[in-house]
């Protein structure tokens, strides 16, 4: 097991090293202002940390990602689970879900800003609405896969509703919840950036818009990599260990 871990770690580190090497080499071939080298981007990151801009805007964006993520996960899970368990409800709302999945994110963002104004509520709402249908679809599949025979055991032994939900239903939904959470996280932060770019005066998206206007590619890459690093940190420190814990019986 240790050997396996060691060889995987070597593979990951060498993959990262080769990526940096290709980037560095490409920056030599192109104009440095169009594709700045890794060390220029790194210097920009340090600069932005030094003037407190990076932490401030990243924190604002993270806050929006977190709130939208929680809202989308709760509402999407409830809708999806009910649709998966109730056939008539599913038939009724199925087309709504297809509609929700296919309306472009940009349209929802614009509509939310027009209807509710250029404010925080509209921004969070726009991101959540974009994500809810996807969570609902994944959880609908999860709810459909709930084993009837385990629910029968619960019914037969007359176990409480609380035990039924937490010890019989939810453990069967964990893989689907984790899948929805993982895809949700990667999608939401991308949408949050668009939302910020279009109608907020702070956040990573707002900063990227500023860099775009001045063709400051190093700034764009500095914020992008910082944010990707944070998302990877969340994935490796929080999501993966949680997933491992929840599915250790497998």
């Amino acid at each position: 097991m240790y050997e396996n871990f060691k060889s995987n770690s070597i593979l990951r580190v060498s993959s990262l090293f080769i990526f940096l090497l290709i980037w560095w080499f490409s920056s030599f071939l192109y104009n440095n202002s169009l594709l700045p080298s890794p060390n220029i981007v790194f210097t920009k990151i340090l600069e932005e940390i030094d003037n407190n801009e990076l932490f401030f805007h990243t924190f604002i964006t993270l806050k929006r990602v977190f709130i939208s993520f929680i809202i989308a996960m709760i509402i999407g899970s409830v809708i999806g689970t009910f649709m998966g368990r109730r056939e008539k409800l599913n038939t009724f709302f199925d087309d709504w879900l297809v509609l929700g999945l296919n309306v472009p994110a940009l349209v929802i963002i614009i509509l939310c800003y027009v209807w509710f104004g250029l404010n925080e509520t509209a921004a969070i709402l726009a991101v959540s609405i974009n994500k809810i249908p996807m969570v609902a679809v994944i959880l609908r599949e999860g709810a459909r896969s709930i084993e009837k025979e385990y629910v029968e055991v619960a019914k037969f032994y007359n176990i409480s509703k609380k035990k039924l939900i937490f010890h019989v239903i939810l453990p069967q939904l964990y893989p689907y919840l984790m899948s929805a959470a993982r895809s949700g996280l990667s999608l939401i932060w991308k949408i949050v950036l668009v939302v910020e770019l279009l109608g907020r005066s702070n956040g990573v998206g707002f900063k990227l818009y500023g860099f775009f206007q001045f063709f400051d590619i190093s700034g764009i890459l500095a914020y992008t990599f910082s944010f990707v690093l944070i998302i990877l940190f969340v994935e490796f420190i929080f999501v993966r260990p949680l997933e491992k814990k929840l599915t250790r019986w497998r």
């Binding site: 025979e149 385990y150 055991v153």
Partner: peptide
């Protein structure tokens, strides 16, 4: 009820399977 298959919850330990009921 003892079913044709054991119908133990695979995600619960043996102790917790019994505790559940």
């Amino acid at each position: 009820y003892v079913f044709q298959t054991s119908r133990l919850m695979p995600w619960l330990t043996l102790f917790n399977n019994i505790k559940l009921v």
